[in-house]
Nucleic acid binder design. Structure first.
Length: 531
RNA sequence: GGCGGCAUAGCCAAGUGGUAAGGCAGAGGUCUGCAAAACCUCGAUUCCCCGGUUCGAAUCCGGGUGCCGCCUCCA
């Protein structure tokens, strides 16, 4: 079984062969920090989170770089509007971004570089392009001469003539050719500037990614990802800059995720239908958002609807319930997600220190040999999961296998409960595979007990350590008094014993009206907060 | 105008040559005092339409219709 990845460059699935055996260098374009992140960002970042986790699961040592663009027109505009500095805006929204990422349970990248910390590298890259005549200075600006780079348009499948039709020159720009793009922008009054050989100014957007990817991953590396909208011009320009400067092939596999539409409309500021991660997390469990995203293939567009998100929440309940039952049966006792920090050169990032540790399965755990000879192993979850993920990270199919396994496990547990089956061997193996697999997808970051306790309440914490914290237990948030519930359950139990079904049912109905569901099990009555 | 994508059951969705995964909703059943949860059974003779290639197509080719994205900042 080999991993195949759809490469935007060739528009085909290709067998994944990293430059260096056992190692993967991966760069993903992160946010421009000028506003809160929304569901679209969440989708992108979750898609690459799972790709990262899966590569780790396969045993690769992954160096995962995700940048933060902390100097940009939009940041400057916002700062001017708010009467503050660009640096302050960037600092603030970098913090907000990190809170969202931690809340979503994302693994922390190996390095998270930002543009303003890499001015020397950026300037060196521009100088090199100038020396090699791929760039030219015009006033205090420096532009990349697109027509001098032979391969331009290869990634986005455009030719120069087509591009020319859509190109435009902003007032004040001094491009020699409308297709050219800025590597360095001369500072205007009131803008933050850095010194450079061309005078005070700031880097263009594209050049930071070329400089920083090279700094951490080298001139040539394995995977570069981002949203589909970045294909042109951002990634096209990155290729031009990087390959012109180094003379080496830039990236082997380009991966781009599809967009999220909101209730059949494109999410956009002008339509006023931005759904922020923060807003979602006030009512949806972070792993339900993850499940919602992973239920669709990463390259396809998603149309968000509240109904579908609610469905994801239901499915998450089911998976956690299955895990809980396995735990109670003494199977799958393993903690869902053994914390295992990402391999590779950590700690070089500019930001991101002190955040929650990534929750990754250990490669050893998942590569442990399966017991021989059992039928369950042959058709087991883990091989099918890998088969699905190996086909261009087909998380939707992988989830289908996960649900299949859950149903089989629940069935086995039912039979066991009736004294039917025995819980040894294959069942234990499948149970383990179930929890492991969910972990690779970034699910099961809490224990079932914790999950059901907090179920339905995910109040965003604006203060504190940056992780998701609930505003209290679900009971408190809904004005439910646990002790009182227990008392009512005892009262109902007494009623049931004297076969006073009327009283018993009335108590149950009253509690249900307050959002509490009772379940009578052989071991007694348990209660849960309704979703 | 140019480039690209998508169209699969009531809804969501996987599947790119070998006879339609999975989930939600719905119906019936097992269990239960009744429920809930879990489990079992049931749903597309068919994959937007029309041609074609093939022993065989949801999957390939041609044409058509519809929807969407990018081409300007955008995940």
């Amino acid at each position: 079984m080999t991993l195949r990845i759809f490469n935007t460059l060739t528009r085909t699935k290709e067998v994944f062969v990293p430059r260096e055996a056992g190692k993967v260098g991966m760069y993903v374009c992160g946010p421009t920090v000028y506003d809160l992140s929304h569901l679209g960002h969440a989708r992108s970042v979750l898609a690459f989170d799972v790709i990262y986790r899966y590569l780790c699961h396969l045993g690769y040592q992954v160096t995962f770089v995700r940048n933060i663009t902390d100097i940009d027109d939009k940041i400057i505009v916002r700062a001017q509007r708010e009467g503050t500095t660009a640096a302050e805006v960037a600092r603030r929204f970098t913090g907000e971004f990190h809170r969202d990422m931690a809340a979503l349970g994302l693994a922390v990248p190996t390095v998270e570089p930002c543009a303003t910390q890499h001015l020397p590298a950026i300037i060196r890259l521009i100088e090199r392009l100038l020396q090699q005549q791929f760039a030219y200075q015009a006033g205090g600006d420096v532009y990349f001469a697109v027509k001098r780079f032979a391969g331009y348009g290869r990634l986005s499948k455009r030719n120069l003539d087509e591009l020319l039709a859509g190109a435009r020159v902003e007032p004040g720009e001094q491009k020699a050719d409308p297709l050219d793009f800025a590597l360095w922008k001369a500072g205007k009054p009131g803008e933050p500037v850095w010194d450079s050989p061309w005078g005070p100014g700031r880097p263009g957007w594209h050049v930071e990614c070329s400089a920083m990817s090279q700094a951490y991953l080298g001139a040539s590396f394995d995977i570069h990802g981002g949203g589909q909208d970045l294909v042109f011009p951002h990634h096209e320009n990155e290729i031009a800059q990087s390959e012109a400067a180094t003379g080496q092939p830039f990236v082997r596999y380009w991966i781009h995720n599809g967009f999220v539409n909101l209730e059949h409309e494109k999410m956009s500021k002008s339509l006023g239908n931005i759904l922020t991660i923060r807003d979602l997390l006030s009512r949806i469990h972070p792993e339900a958002i993850r499940l919602f995203v992973l239920a669709h293939h990463y390259r396809r567009p998603i149309d968000y609807t509240a109904e579908q998100m609610a469905e994801a929440q239901k499915n998450l309940d089911y998976l956690y319930l299955t895990w809980q039952r396995l735990e109670e049966a003494g199977l799958a006792t393993l903690p869902g997600t053994p914390p295992e920090p990402a391999a590779g050169p950590g700690g070089r990032g500019d930001v991101g220190a002190g955040r929650a540790a990534p929750l990754l399965p250990t490669p050893e755990a998942v590569h442990a040999p399966m017991p021989d000879g059992t039928a369950a192993t042959e058709a087991g979850l883990l091989p099918r999961f890998r088969e699905a993920m190996n086909e261009d990270f087909n998380t939707a199919l992988a989830l289908a296998h996960l649900f299949d396994a859950a149903r089989a496990l629940n069935k086995a547990l039912d039979q066991q409960g009736r004294g039917g089956g025995d819980g040894s061997g294959p069942l234990a193996t499948e149970a383990q595979a179930f929890v492991t697999t969910a972990g690779v997808l970034g699910l099961f970051q809490q224990s079932p007990a914790e999950y059901f306790r907090r179920r339905g309440t995910f109040v965003y914490a604006y203060e504190g350590t940056g992780g998701l914290s609930t505003g209290g237990s679900a009971e408190i948030a809904r004005g439910i008094d646990g002790a009182e519930v227990e008392r009512l359950i005892a009262e109902r139990q007494a009623a049931r014993q004297r076969r006073d079904w009327g009283t018993a049912d009335r108590i149950r109905a009253d509690l249900l009206a307050r959002g509490i569901v009772l379940e009578d099990t052989p071991k007694g009555t348990v209660w849960k907060v309704k979703g």
